[in-house]
Design a protein around this nucleic acid. Structure first.
Lengths: 253, 253
DNA sequence: CGGCGTTTGCTAACGGTGTTCACTAAAGCG
DNA sequence: CGCTTTAGTGAACACCGTTAGCAAACGCCG
């Protein structure tokens, strides 16, 4: 990327750090979250564990670091999908983006779990700020799309009858802290956004976390069904996914 | 419970096994999932780690065992809540049961995470069948309530226009394998059930897994909001929770 | 080119983990 | 009482994260 003004030393340093993160990432997908160990990484790199401490302050920090990368990667995947459709076709852009989210998730289960799954008892000294920032960046992708829908007045804002003061307060806090909504966005809209996100997050978690696996072997139809009702409620036209083999994680060639 | 015809030996055996599980459970809530270790448990019991292998085939099996207990406990909590309201007041029973689910979840985050969170790379030799069975038993609680709604024709079945063959197939599989629906339940109903469950599962996961924590500090209003729309769609009257301090986890003892 | 500080990586060590094996001591039973 | 089954131990192996001290390489600057 941008290692222009870096001294030779800094360049090789950056390179080994990248290698560390890459191997960590691979171990994550191959052996699960608990399968990421400094010693194993060092072994694979032909060095010893303490040496890694020159690059990473500990295993927790390493996990945070790769979490950042994964959020960026997910964001890039979604953005790429979004960019692959004509700019003015908002409806298709949204469908495509959301499907890209699910596709990435089911194709990267371990990653998704560490990004969106339970945070193990996090000790206060751990600096998770970068990961949170990365998550925020990722979310922004969807905010802009949603903003567009809002601007186009695609859906009617729900009447604020069942919108308790407490909920309104939380939604306002949400809108303020999450970075988007520079113009004062109505809380009702934030609520619609939350509700939609809850549903899609819910299906995807169910699928990735392998709930239901005993009882249902392909979750894509259920995702599509949720997507359908969510989009409809948002005033976005639903269309089934374009061919490309029903679900089967496109194992081409 | 039912240790009637057990020899003295079997009784004390059962007792130590219970102690093991109890300590494991406590370590789980106090130090997180990775904080459960056979050596620590043994130490606390005044014995050595290998001794535990007389009772448990390994740490994975122990985790499965306590997962079973946790599902039973969650099921009991929900059932107790359900039983605490007059039998004929279906609406309130449903509200109470679902709120009991969330309350238990937020009050037992580590447990919820191991029950409903991502399953770490599960090696095939692990026998998770008991946990799955326990989960099934738990789910049954809600099936019966839903069955009642269905019998009372509380809500209109969605038209099967956007019900693709694939979705229908999966829903049928769901209905067959999950044990309820002895009478042939319409797939449309199963779909409504799935959709509702997805939403509530979604909010609760978001809350327990601490997504949003940066952006929103009390998730109860959002849960209530989802509950509202879910119930309304189900033909069940929504009522706000009965006072009892907004969220505050009813610190047990 | 030589010197010298900085950076890198090593070894050794401590304390922790799961798990296996061989063994003793106790408990139960005929 | 004697024999069998069982509970529990100790030692060992192979891992893990992390710290401290040290030696070698690197790169800069005179």
């Amino acid at each position: 990327m941008e290692q222009v003004g870096l001294s030779r030393r800094e360049r090789v340093r950056e390179a080994t750090l990248s290698e560390i993160k890459a191997i960590a990432r691979r171990h994550l997908v191959e052996h699960g979250p608990s399968g990421v160990s400094l010693r194993a990484i060092a072994r694979e790199m032909g060095m010893t564990a303490p040496g890694l401490y020159r690059y990473v302050s500990g295993i927790d920090a390493l996990l945070v670091a790769i979490t950042v990368e994964m959020f960026d990667e997910l964001g890039a995947a979604v953005a790429a999908a979004d960019a692959s459709v004509p700019d003015e076709d908002t409806d298709r852009r949204i469908r495509t983006s959301l499907r890209a989210f699910r596709t990435w998730a089911v194709g990267h289960r371990s990653e998704f779990a560490t990004m969106f799954g339970p945070r193990p008892h996090v000790d206060p000294n751990a600096d998770t700020a970068p990961a949170i920032e990365a998550a925020r960046r990722f979310a922004a992708t969807f905010y802009t799309l949603f903003d567009r829908l809002l601007a186009e007045r695609r859906f009617a804002l729900p009447d604020s009858s069942h919108l308790t003061p407490e909920l309104a307060r939380e939604l306002r806090s949400f809108a303020e802290n999450c970075g988007f909504s520079a113009p004062h966005i109505p809380v009702e809209a934030v609520m619609v956004l939350s509700s939609c996100w809850v549903r899609l997050y819910g299906v995807v978690c169910m699928e990735v976390f392998d709930q239901m696996s005993v009882v249902m072997d392909d979750m894509e139809p259920l995702f599509e069904s949720e997507l359908h009702t969510v989009l409809t409620g948002l005033g976005v036209r639903y269309e089934p996914p374009e061919s490309t083999a029903p679900t089967a994680v496109s194992a081409p060639d």
